[in-house]
């Protein structure tokens, strides 16, 4: 059985307070469910309440001045923090009839989705927001879809696909 994302696992994600790609992907492979942990964790916070109504998650880089990426891909190696908001996910039970299982699935999807932004991957299938750098995002669902599907890990909508992988950019350290 997969084990949850824990402080020890997140340790390898850190490099000078920046998110590093390879470790994140390794972590996602063993990722089951991430929650608030005792140790201070600069990279991933599970927060009870969103700072903006309805927000599922947020990827921060120093240029966004405490605001989210708004669907933009993160600048390589600049991501300082990712947040996942519990209240917005829990509300899916009353607005969309999601079961607790689907809500848990969606929390995992959000975490993976935000990590994707951290690796410079865009939203997909959102007609009003083309990827700023002109990257092709494809037309089928992936974990980077804005849609909230509540699907489990084995569904394509909960996974990265080749169009996502091609967008990954990680700057080399100077």
């Amino acid at each position: 059985m997969l084990t949850p994302l824990r402080a020890t696992r997140m340790g390898c994600v850190m490099m000078g307070n920046k998110l590093t790609g390879v470790c994140v992907i390794l972590d996602l492979l063993s990722f089951d469910f991430a929650r608030q942990i005792v140790q201070k964790n600069l990279v991933l916070n599970i927060s009870p309440m969103a700072p903006r109504s309805g927000l599922f998650g947020c990827t921060f880089d120093p240029t966004t001045n405490s605001l989210c990426q708004f669907g933009r891909p993160g600048t390589p190696n600049w991501i300082v923090k990712i947040e996942v908001y519990m209240d917005t996910h829990q509300k899916l039970a009353t607005t969309r009839g999601f079961t607790s299982q689907q809500i848990e699935n969606e929390i995992k999807r959000t975490t993976g989705h935000e990590v994707g932004h951290g690796l410079h991957i865009c939203h997909r299938t959102v007609p009003s927001t083309p990827c700023p750098d002109g990257a092709s995002v494809g037309t089928v669902d992936s974990i980077m879809s804005s849609n909230i599907t509540g699907t489990p890990q084995n569904d394509p909508a909960s996974q990265y696909n080749s169009a996502d992988a091609q967008q990954i950019r990680i700057a080399r350290n100077p």
Partner: peptide, 22 residues
Amino acid sequence: SYLGIYCSLMHSTTGSPRYDEP
């Protein structure tokens, strides 16, 4: 066996620009 115990403060937010924790 792994027993997970998770706790979070209700009615808090991480939206503060000054601190990372809730």
